[in-house]
Simulated scan of single mutants.
Amino acid sequence: MSSCSGGSGVLAVAGEIDLTSSEQLAVAVRDVVTRGDIDRITLDLDQLTFLDSMGIHALMDVKSWASEHGVVLRVSNPHNMVHRVLAITGVLTELMDEPQRSSVQQADF
């Protein structure tokens, strides 16, 4: 856990979330939630560099699991490819309070 205050916690996620690492995310979120004393957890994706379909599935699974345990799970700071993958798959708005636009502008041709 990067930080915890007032019933909220922030968990920094770095590297990749894919088939080989999705269980690590689930374990980390479950550990934080089962410690108690929080009603909200934010996954800070600022250092996340890769997210595939298994990663998206893992994010949605931990969101659902947290909700079943009375904890709201949201993500923050997705950027570049991670932001684009979340937006294209339609889960960005479900995972964020207020969807942020990527700082990278793209031109349509």
Rank of each mutant, 00 (worst) to 15 (best):
G7Y: 07
R35I: 02
E68D: 15
L45R: 08
E16N: 04
Q24F: 07
L73A: 04
D61F: 03
V27W: 09
V62A: 08
S76Y: 06
M96P: 08
A66S: 15
V33I: 09
T42H: 04
V27G: 07
Q47C: 07
R84C: 13
L92H: 12
E23I: 03
L48W: 03
D46S: 11
H69A: 04
V32D: 01
I88A: 10
P78I: 03
S3L: 14
Q24V: 06
R40T: 01
V27T: 13
V75C: 08
V104I: 14
S3I: 04
G15S: 09
V27E: 15
A26Q: 14
D97Y: 01
S8E: 04
E98W: 09
T42F: 11
L11V: 14
S5T: 01
F50N: 14
V32Y: 03
V72R: 00
A12R: 15
S103I: 05
V85N: 12
V13D: 02
R84Y: 12
M96D: 10
N77R: 11
L43Y: 02
S2D: 05
Q100L: 12
E16D: 14
V10R: 03
G36S: 06
Q100G: 04
K63T: 12
S64M: 10
P99M: 09
V13M: 07
I88S: 12
I41P: 10
